[in-house]
């Protein structure tokens, strides 16, 4: 066949595309279990990091089993319901009406006291941001927080994933003295807010900072009933 003819070129391109597609799907299918395992381990590491427990991928699963004493799902009035907390996809839940959402809670035992870990998910400047915030057994004082992002600007919004940004969350309060949920204000410079509810935002990363503040308020509002129940 004429190697420069249209028929040959079209045939060649079609066969090549089908062959490449077959190879890639086979690879993706076979590697899926390993990748899923890695993602689960990363999730365990993030959950543990929010209560200040550092892990490596090798020991994360064991430490998770030891520290996380119970996981359960609640609805937005604070009652337990059926479900597997670890495998809940917040993106799916957030698309539902507030009273139909399944809200996961992870209970950790750290230094003898109980911490409640709440997963968060929101929208940053360029893509999703997510994280975990842990509160003390009084369900008011923040014990720790971790955040991660898909594609925030390196050096600016991406700083939410650093310890420097996350550390000040510890010790902040979620409720004010009249038991109203204030959540945490991620303040830009000069912004006034009570010190016990305020952490510093990122200069140059205001949109990401404010998106994170909104994520905290939106998600914690769903948990308000649970957190108010002492």
């Amino acid at each position: 066949m004429d190697r420069n003819g249209n028929t040959y070129t079209f045939l060649y391109a079609s066969v090549m595309v089908v062959a490449v597609a077959a190879i890639l799907s086979a690879a993706a299918f076979n590697l899926k279990p390993y990748q899923k395992r890695n993602e689960e381990i990363e999730k365990m590491q993030n959950i543990l990091a929010s209560v200040g427990v550092e892990t490596t991928p090798a020991n994360a699963a064991d430490i998770y089993k030891e520290k996380i004493v119970s996981t359960y799902v609640i609805d937005n009035s604070g009652n337990k319901k059926d479900g597997d907390a670890f495998n809940i996809d917040l993106k799916v839940e957030h698309a539902k009406a507030a009273n139909e959402q399944s809200l996961p809670i992870f209970e950790a035992k750290v230094d003898g006291s109980t911490k409640y870990i709440i997963p968060l998910r929101g929208t940053g400047l360029w893509g999703p941001i997510w994280g975990y915030i842990s509160v003390d057994s009084d369900k008011n004082t923040v014990y720790g927080a971790v955040f991660a992002h898909k594609g925030e600007t390196p050096g600016l919004g991406a700083e939410i994933a650093t310890g420097k940004f996350q550390a000040p969350f510890a010790g902040k309060k979620l409720f004010d003295s009249s038991s109203k949920l204030v959540s945490i204000i991620v303040a830009k410079s000069g912004e006034q807010a009570p010190a016990e509810h305020k952490v510093d935002g990122i200069s140059g990363g205001t949109i990401t900072s404010k998106a994170l503040e909104k994520m905290l308020l939106d998600d914690l509002t769903n948990y308000e009933a649970f957190l108010s129940k002492k």
């Binding site: 060649y12 390993y34 890695n38």
Partner: peptide, 24 residues
């Protein structure tokens, strides 16, 4: 285009393998 498809396919393979075995 053929070169690009070959390279792109190999890169996706490498990416998938890295994700599966050296996640960090």
């Amino acid at each position: 285009i053929v070169q690009l498809v070959v390279v792109a396919a190999l890169v996706i393979l490498v990416d998938q393998i890295l994700k599966a075995f050296v996640y960090d």
